[in-house]
Simulated assay, not measured.
Amino acid sequence: MTAPFVASLGMYDHPGQRAANDALWAAIAEHLRRQGIAAPPAVDRGRSVEAIWRDPALLFAQCCGYPLVADAELALRVVAVPHYAVPNCPPGRHLSRVLVRADDPAATLAAFAGRTVAINAPLSNTGANLLRAAVAQVAPPEDFFGATITTGSHRASIDAVASGRADIAAIDAVTHAVIARDEPGALAGLRELAMTPLAPNLPFVTAWATPPSVVTALRRALDAVMRDPALAQARAALFLTAVEPASVHRYVALRRLAR
């Protein structure tokens, strides 16, 4: 790889987390520079995460696990999997919280057959794939919902349900925890109907062409920032508790889950 490199932490970058992501990346970049890697000084917030994933100069980012194995054109290498301190999510794994309006009388997921669902993106693991897996436990998932609204983000899916434009949505548990902490009013009038099956957390990735030596340097930098007491507040803002090396093999199960 040659400079200029690109970095992103856009998957969990709620306004209340941006300062923490900036601090985390600044520390990672400093560790990389000490290892001779010209890391960018700041994360890229000017493009969509999907565009950044496809940049051949990608040094470091976080990616949704399902497109990693479902999109044949996405050439990424898994560096590590994070652990988050979020209820119902064991180390290295997460789920989605299925939200509906609090005043909706339907008591089960099966009762939402024919209703309108909001998803953040068709290839989202937490917003679509895990919800489909949850539906498959109670009914054939094909054509289960009456209509689908694609919102572009979990936050927008929450708004779609709250406003009545949709009846149900699956929200990534980490995103839900961030919004519950930093923007609780957004969840007013909503309730949790169910939880989806568990899946591996969103991986930290790099471009497929990244040399093994740089992947090793990234893992060393991640290990260092996870042990740095000066970053404890930033890690807490992100609910981040640990990072472990991983490969794409951990995410193959998401393709089987989709089938």
Rank of each mutant, 00 (worst) to 15 (best):
T241N: 00
A242Y: 00
T116Y: 12
A19V: 15
V78E: 01
R256C: 05
R219C: 04
A234T: 01
E183P: 00
L218V: 12
S163Y: 06
A121M: 14
S153D: 09
L109R: 05
A3M: 12
L32F: 11
D44F: 01
Q62R: 14
C89H: 06
D22G: 14
M1T: 06
N21I: 10
P203M: 00
A199C: 15
P141T: 07
A133S: 11
A188C: 08
A42N: 12
F204G: 00
A121D: 14
I119S: 09
L190H: 06
Y84E: 05
T148K: 06
P67T: 07
R220F: 15
P245K: 03
E142P: 09
A70C: 07
T150E: 09
T196G: 02
W53Y: 15
A234R: 06
L24N: 00
I119M: 08
D44M: 03
A177F: 01
L32S: 07
D103P: 07
V243M: 00
M195P: 01
R250D: 06
E192G: 02
P245M: 01
A3E: 12
I52E: 10
P140Q: 07
R34M: 13
L231G: 00
R250Y: 04
A162I: 14
A194R: 09
V214T: 08
A188L: 14
A7R: 03
G36Y: 06
P184Q: 14
E142N: 07
G10W: 10
G46C: 10
L109F: 03
W208F: 13
F239P: 02
A224V: 03
R54S: 09
C89A: 15
A234C: 13
I168W: 14
A133K: 11
T108W: 13
V243Q: 00
A72V: 03
L254H: 12
A169R: 00
Q62S: 15
G127Q: 14
Y84F: 13
P90E: 11
S247V: 04
H83V: 00
P56S: 12
A85S: 09
P56Q: 10
T196R: 03
A7E: 03
A242E: 06
A7C: 06
A258L: 00
E142W: 12
A136F: 04
T206L: 07
H31K: 15
G164N: 04
F144Q: 02
P15S: 03
P200V: 13
A75W: 12
A72N: 12
V86M: 08
F112Y: 15
P56C: 05
D44I: 04
F112C: 10
N129S: 12
L68V: 13
G189W: 03
A20W: 13
I37F: 05
A224W: 01
A128P: 05
S48L: 05
A199P: 02
A207Y: 04
P184H: 11
A118C: 06
A234N: 01
D167Y: 03
A19W: 12
A253G: 10
L202C: 14
P203F: 03
A29R: 11
T151V: 05
I28F: 09
L123D: 15
G185C: 07
A133F: 06
V138W: 14
Y251M: 04
A57C: 11
N201M: 05
E192D: 08
V43H: 01
V214N: 09
